[in-house]
Amino acid sequence: MNEFLQQLINGLSLGAVYALIALGYTMVYGVLRFINFAHGDVFMVGAFSGMYLSRWLKPLLGHWPEWLFAVVVLAGSMTFCAALGILIERLAYKPLRERPRLTVLITAIGVSLLLEYSGQLLFGAAPRGFPSLIESRSLPGLGELHATNIQAFVLTATALLLGGLHLIVMRTRMGLAMRALSLNPTAAMLMGVNTNVVISFTFGLGSALAAAGAIFYASLYQAIEPFMGVLPGMKAFVAAVLGGVGSLPGAMVGGLILGVVETLVVGYSKVLGIPPGYRDAVAFVILILILLFKPSGLFGKQQREKV
């Protein structure tokens, strides 16, 4: 039982990261109906920007409490990635608004490759150590269970970010516009919603969340490299599908479920008879099963093509 709880703790912190990335996929899908393939690479940029920010800011703000320092770095890289996300949308996707979805998808793959290989050019291909924003300590009072203050930070911060997102989407004009756009783009436009602004905002918001996920991910695993976004990106997409693409609660729940399941499969690999090496296949098996049996996901609505 203890071991199970232990896996659950580990799984939830990984799941939090997936959930943060998955939200970006789902929001963009909501307003533009396409899968932003480059989202996982924005996540990668988030990790690198966090690394450089913490290096530059360390001499200036080194005397601050470490959690506050971590929050500053987090905010800094979220802002940077939000700008990057908006820029990508403006330059690469906006000219393609009325084109077939496949064209946009291929462009997204192009953007993804561009970010990956530019990253390789700028940062080198070898994995780099991520500076520990918060010094890792075991949390006391958990008995045989082991959890670090980093995990606690990740879960708390994720909860706060999700709360903030909820407020933005449900309580602000911009959030209302986002929801209107995802329900019916034409009607939203006719009602005076400025589509371009809303789409930009959505990309910014999604990219910022991905950057937060990246800082958490890098803090948990401590190594970053230019291709680090590929797998988490794809898995987060699976999480989004699991929850039902277009549904924000779905993306959160899907992310958490995926993180936990993946961790459990590795943790219980002996019992299950699945080699731990199959870890990366778990997400895809889940994806295929969902698309076969419940393509609309846990929280999604079924869509029907108009004939």
């Binding site: 690469a92 393609l96 192009g110 953007v111 490759l113 561009l114 990956e116």
Partner: peptide, 8 residues
């Protein structure tokens, strides 16, 4: 990658 984007 750039070629792909510009081409599209």
């Amino acid at each position: 990658a750039l070629l792909l984007i510009v081409l599209m």
